[in-house]
Write a protein that binds this DNA or RNA. Structure first.
Lengths: 362, 362
DNA sequence: GCGACTTGCGTTACCGCTACCATAAAGCAG
DNA sequence: CTGCTTTATGGTAGCGGTAACGCAAGTCGC
């Protein structure tokens, strides 16, 4: 009995089958959670699996099943922190599912270049594509993908098409909750920095903000709102504009952490203390939220979990036969969490007095 | 002639073989760049490959070759920007090589927890591990990996063990080059923010800085140097200290971009203009370098390429038989690049006068 | 000119797993 | 009890590649 060709000490499905006294097929069924296995058999197999510490060979599995193996991830890079968390989540999901992640950057905002990048990407032979924000909203990309009949799952797209796959949190609700937090602290003049205008989640967050104001009897139309683009740089500009207004806000709600961090920076440059003179809150709970000082009150989006959920959704649609209990699920709305840190506090007494002249810039 | 079981329209090695009029084995040889194939045969096969747009099935390949398929990446997360670039590079390499990346975070600096995390990680069955900074220098992790006989490649470890795999740039040389750039602009009092003390690359950068000073006839012992830890927060503290000195520096060289960005922030808070009143330069050329204003002069480390190189090195050692021309390579030193942007300029005339009293803060 | 070695390519036997079908056992109506 | 469906399990044949080996033809030393 000579050793097999590649005598690596790995335990195979055959070993498990022999140990459990069943056929390899039955082990395979247990591993894949198929229904028609008697409970006693399943338990015996499971015990053998545990005892031998068996884990299936993903290469053999995808080869035999002819499964989709290459999932594309087309990304732009507005925030490194967000992307990192997203990648980590997606990779964890890919490892579990035994599929490969194929990355492609698409930095440009030009429709032609986006379409071109998408075409090259699809050519490379991916079985499905994950579209994190902000690309999830790009029309040229969706058009190109549809033309190639490549399945897509979008992440954080505010207004999903019916029948298309989407993973998101309730941006409207989250923004309203955050706004209520500021209102409860006693703020009445709350500035808002919008996210990228092409991004429907931006709209949802803005709507949530305004709805909460209205709820509190404040005219949302008169609220100080500036446009941002989710980048640190755009946050600097928007914060400058908000703080240059005659009626200076006592709190600023930025649509993501990068812009909130920029707002903190501008406040410091202007000699304002956060949160004593100005509360600043963000959205996403990415790294900048905890690297700036003071640490930001923000909304935690479970970015990694969303990436995993997106991958699962896509794979489920790509492999229709498997445990079909959850087929027909097209959307997955995950829970957010309000994270209260040090950058939000009640407004100071003098800050409440409107139009008080402030020191000129340092 | 019925369609095969899984009738996906993929082109297989058999199709190519038939088209080129050779056996599948010969196609395999051409694909893998083996030597003993006649030139005319190789050309014919290559043409068939191109014509059919053939790309091999990675699952089948790894299964048949019994190759290492799971490469671990154990990371801490001091800088999201660095990690993102690293992940993107590693993923690209993994895609090419047809192996899976398995991620594991190890945030803690406690030796016990690092060892514990490593043990769990190795248990999960990775064939080799990539260790990006700062974990590349962690003794407990190396010890644990050695005990499990798991091959490792370190990235940016300043002082590699002989015989171990390592990818890096010449930190000493890069820091010296950057320092010379500041000296050539006319700076004589150059502050320096060191990186994490456990990280040997930090030492190398510091040594490069001091060597360049000495070269220019400046006593390196008297240079203003503060300790940092590669984080934005630590940069704030170090920059404050440097700028609080009686002999205020006219330029500050931070050991990474995060700390340089923090330095710019502190300078602004103190009413100093960058680069008119203070030049600030960084290291790494990660996202913060271009998100702050003014954009940072920095050293570009080819982070993505380094990750790819690390993966290649590891796989080459894990798969010894293949194109053995490059066996015996244990280290890979990549080129860096000095990126001159707007944050460095000649010192202003008045800044040259030592010990001139400056405005108080804010 | 003959054996030994090299070169170029094909044949065979798998890698570890699962789709497909066969089959035995069990349930069940009439 | 018979015939029919349902359920649990096993046997077989690949999935698309590559390692190992075989073998013919060419190269070379003596």
């Amino acid at each position: 009995m000579r050793a097999s060709r590649r005598s690596r000490g790995t335990v195979t499905i055959q070993d498990v089958a022999r140990t459990a006294g069943v056929s390899a097929m039955t082990v395979s069924r247990v591993m894949n959670g198929e229904r028609n296995v008697r409970e006693s058999t399943r338990a015996a197999v499971q015990e053998a699996i545990d005892r031998l510490n068996y884990s299936p060979n993903t290469a053999a599995r995808s080869l035999a099943a002819g499964e989709a193996t290459h999932i594309g991830l087309l990304y732009a890079n507005p925030s490194a922190a967000y992307l990192t968390q997203f990648l980590v989540g997606a990779l964890e999901g890919a490892r579990r599912a035994g599929c490969h992640l194929v990355l492609e950057a698409c930095a440009s905002e030009s429709a032609d270049e986006q379409a071109e990048a998408t075409r090259r990407f699809v050519q490379s032979g991916v079985d499905g594509v994950i579209l994190p924000p902000p690309l999830s909203e790009s029309l040229p990309i969706h058009a190109e993908l549809a033309a190639a009949r490549t399945p897509v799952v979008t992440v954080a797209m505010g207004l999903p098409q019916p029948g298309s796959l989407n993973v998101r949190i309730d941006d409207f609700d989250a923004a309203a909750t955050m706004t209520r937090h500021l209102l409860e602290l006693g703020h009445r003049r709350i500035g808002f920095i919008r996210g990228h205008p092409n991004h429907i989640a931006s709209l949802e967050r803005t709507r949530g903000f305004m709805a909460a104001l209205e709820e509190a009897g404040i005219d949302p139309e008169s609220a100080p709102i500036e446009q941002g683009y989710f980048t640190y740089r755009s946050g600097l500009v928007a914060a400058e504009r908000l703080l240059a207004r005659k009626q200076q806000p006592t709190a600023i709600f930025a649509s993501n952490d990068d812009m909130a961090a920029a707002t903190v920076n501008v406040a410091h440059r202007r000699g304002l203390h956060v949160p004593a003179d100005l509360s600043v809150v963000g959205f996403d709970d990415t790294a900048p939220a905890t690297t700036v000082w003071p640490e930001l009150t923000t909304v935690r989006q479970p970015v990694g979990a969303m990436a995993e959920a997106a991958l699962d959704l896509l794979l489920a649609s790509l492999r229709p036969h498997k445990s079909s209990t959850m087929s027909g699920v097209f959307e997955h709305v995950l829970d957010y969490e309000l994270v209260i840190r040090e950058s939000s506090a009640p407004p100071s007494a003098d800050a409440r007095q409107p139009a008080r002249p402030r020191r000129a810039r340092g």
